[in-house]
Design a protein around this nucleic acid. Structure first.
Length: 444
RNA sequence: GGCCCCUUCGUCUAUCGGCUAGGACAUCUGGUUCUCAUCCAGGCAAGAGGAGUUCGACUCUCCUAGGGGCUGCCA
């Protein structure tokens, strides 16, 4: 029989409809599917549900695959395109019609179109049940589910039949998907049974919600994978964070390597309740992952972003870059912040924080301090952080360097925060430092 | 409205009948320090409400309240 199902090897699928954007809730389903496949040594299959011809463009499919590749969600076997299986869907519908599990009827759609659609005939009595791996025993009276359409009046198969037939054809053993499909599951189980196919195991994942408890949408902030990527989140951090939104290893570990995740992942421990998306924790986690980036790679990223400020990059030696990168790495929470964080090092055209100017420069005596410093700095022999710090320390006479440090920082970088001041001066160089100190002094 | 599901600190969560309810993020305090950050030490903060079962309930059962999902010729 065609529908024989060999359940020995785990086969899971991620079946998104390509819309050009990949929502985090959706990609979390992909992550759970992927982890389950890798954990069990099974197959993770990508099925593109591209039956909506309007939105399913090659571009949309490319965006989808890019998001998956970015997160390291590699799929096994050839990508399955649902549109290529339409003939099969319709064949199966004929079989259902022949066996009395489906019938045709004239219906009027919401839009007012009248035509002949094919309906699946639900059992009229009894209880439909299944054990959801995350939600537990689910059951529903058959009479509570009305018959539903499986072929449109234009002859195209509808989601319910296409989905089930594809799952059978692809020998899917575990269906791990969003919570919004639980009600459909009762319908789908009836289709599997009507076809004499083995019913797969189900695991329904709760939704990701916003602070108000409503489904997390683009109105709540970054909602699509591409947006996180653009703002400078690391794929490892997003992956880890999304995984923890509804699952944990059972101990107190939170930052997990991919291998640990694969080894520890367990569908039965996935939470039933919806999780609120907390961007602050993601940000923290991103910082943790940034700290783990090998220095050589981080330096490359710094250079790449610096090149967005000035191109071509001015000549600086390797030590200079390493020094800068080391200063930045521990403070960077989002990769995208690097660019603005180094701007003042490469150009005089950098933004000035007016608040910092008010607070640190526009104070009595500051003009004199800056002029005095410029004079002293001019005489420093070894222009590097340590001697510069010694010099200022001497001026402060052990009373704290604040009165000197803060004005210098704002005068040379335009900001009230950033990397260590003396490291900053070393990186900037004597010439630029003096020039900016003098310019600031003059403006006061 | 009907059906299904959910409910521990502000947030993510641990707890599978013994809890002085633990951790992380956020927040606050202190230390390190030139800012920010890191790092270190510490603080604040939770079982929706009500019955029942039990020697004992956050854990089991029921009810109530609140929240969510579904109820398409969308997926």
């Amino acid at each position: 029989m065609i529908y024989s199902n060999n359940m020995t090897d785990t086969r899971v699928r991620f079946a998104p409809s390509p819309t050009g954007k990949v929502h985090i809730g959706n990609i979390r389903a992909a992550i759970y599917n992927w982890l389950y496949a890798r954990h069990t040594g099974g197959k993770f299959i990508l099925r593109v549900e591209d039956t909506d011809l309007e939105r399913s463009t090659p571009e949309a499919i490319r965006v989808l695959m890019e998001a998956m590749e970015w997160l390291g969600l590699d799929w096994d076997e050839e990508v399955f395109y649902q549109t290529k299986n339409v003939k099969r869907h319709l064949e199966v519908v004929d079989r259902l019609l022949a066996s009395g599990h489906a019938y045709k009827v004239e219906k009027t759609s919401r839009e007012g179109k009248t035509g002949i659609v094919t309906m699946f005939k639900m059992p009229k009595e009894g209880v439909i049940e299944f054990d959801d791996i995350v939600k537990g025993r689910m059951s529903k009276k058959a009479e509570d589910i009305p018959d539903f359409a499986i072929v449109r009046s234009d002859g195209s198969p509808i989601f319910h039949i296409a989905n089930v037939v594809d799952d059978i054809d692809q020998r899917i053993t575990h269906i791990i998907r969003g919570d919004d499909h639980v009600e459909n599951t009762f319908k789908h189980i009836c289709i599997f049974k009507a076809l004499g196919a083995e019913v797969p195991k189900y695991a329904h994942l709760s939704m990701i919600v916003n602070q108000q408890g409503k489904p997390y949408s683009k109105r709540d902030g970054a909602a699509f994978v591409g947006e996180f990527r653009e703002s400078g989140y690391l794929p490892e951090a997003l992956f880890n964070y999304l995984l923890l939104l509804g699952w944990n290893p059972g101990d107190e570990r939170e930052i997990l390597s991919r291998d640990e995740m694969v080894g520890l992942f367990d569908l039965a421990k996935v939470h039933v309740t919806a999780a609120k998306f907390d961007i602050k924790k993601l940000l923290w986690m991103n910082g943790e992952y940034i700290k783990k980036i090998p220095q050589e790679k981080f330096v490359e990223e710094v250079k790449r972003q610096a090149a967005m400020v000035v191109s071509p990059l001015p000549k600086r030696d390797g030590d200079w870059w390493n020094y800068l990168a080391a200063q930045l790495q521990v403070r960077t929470k989002m990769m995208g912040d690097i660019k603005e964080g180094v701007r003042y090092l490469f150009t005089d055209d950098y933004p000035v924080d007016e608040k910092a100017v008010e607070k640190r420069l526009k104070k009595p005596g500051v003009k004199e301090i800056l002029e005095d410093l410029a004079a002293r700095f001019g005489k420093v022999e070894d222009w590097s952080a340590a001697p510069l710090e010694e010099l200022v320390k001497g001026l402060s006479q052990g009373n704290g360097m604040g009165p000197w440090v803060h004005p210098i920082r704002v005068a040379v970088s335009g900001r009230g925060e950033g990397i260590g001041l003396f490291e900053m001066l070393q990186l900037l160089g004597r010439e630029k430092t003096l020039e900016r100190l003098e310019r600031a002094a003059k403006s006061l």
